[in-house]
């Protein structure tokens, strides 16, 4: 079974490997000139298919070096847990900052198709409403209780890898997979939100995600 640690090692090796691949100098590159902004369609589709959470995620990236894009991702969402053991709602806004490192050199001026690995730091403001819990106990009798509402901040790190290509002029599509781990799981261990937009299922310290971005790019290549 691939653990979060082995995934981290895998992505770091990819990152190092990609640095070797595109170490050549690209004199046609224009720094800070090309920006892309887009939406994560996997979140939209996931929200449509799920009756437990809604989430919307956007991405903005800007070319910093020929092989490195600085990335900001932001979004919001809400989640609902409703089963025989627990009932509560939560909502959050988040921002992730980081970079994507391309694998391959540009094949021609303005070439933006590439595979990449990246790193993100995520932070989210979370609001959890009061929660009702039930514990079924046929021997001594069932238990029921209420946990008061809570606000907290979640921090996490993500490793990502994927592909992105220009499907029409200045329109890009691309997917990436992510491994995420909380930096401060202790601060909400009493009862985490059922789903944290930007992170995923928050009842475990590690989460995996899949994103499919549709982006519009503008500026000089």
């Amino acid at each position: 079974m691939m653990t979060a640690r082995s995934l981290t090692l895998f992505f770091l090796l990819l990152l190092c490997g990609s640095m070797q691949l595109n170490a050549q100098k690209d004199s046609t590159f224009k720094k800070w000139r090309y920006v892309r902004i887009g939406v994560d369609l996997a979140s939209v589709l996931g929200s449509f298919l799920s009756d437990e959470n809604n989430r919307t995620e956007f991405q903005l990236d800007i070319a910093w070096k020929p092989d490195i894009n600085l990335v900001a991702e932001f979004g919001f969402g809400d989640a609902r847990v409703e089963n025989e053991n627990l009932r509560y709602k939560s909502s959050n806004q988040f921002i992730r900052l980081g970079l994507d490192k391309n694998f391959f050199n540009r094949e021609f001026k303005g070439d933006k198709d590439n595979a990449f690995v990246g790193l993100r730091y995520g932070i989210s403001a979370v609001k959890r409403q009061s929660a009702t819990y039930f514990i079924t106990d046929p021997i001594w009798g069932n238990t029921e209780g209420i946990l008061p509402a809570e606000k907290f901040t979640a921090h996490w790190l993500e490793l990502t890898g994927g592909l992105r290509m220009e499907i029409m002029k200045n329109i890009f599509a691309g997917w990436n997979v992510r491994a995420k781990t909380f930096l401060n799981p202790a601060s909400f261990k009493e009862l985490p939100p059922g789903y944290l937009a930007g992170f995923g299922r928050a009842d475990q310290n590690t989460a995996f995600g899949f994103h499919f971005y549709l982006l519009y790019g503008f500026g000089k290549r």
Binding site: N85, L86, Y133, I135, T143, G145, K189, P192, D203
Partner: peptide, 13 residues
Amino acid sequence: ELKFISAACGFQT
């Protein structure tokens, strides 16, 4: 002491 298990399982003591 109440301990959280998961969103699906809720709590245990």
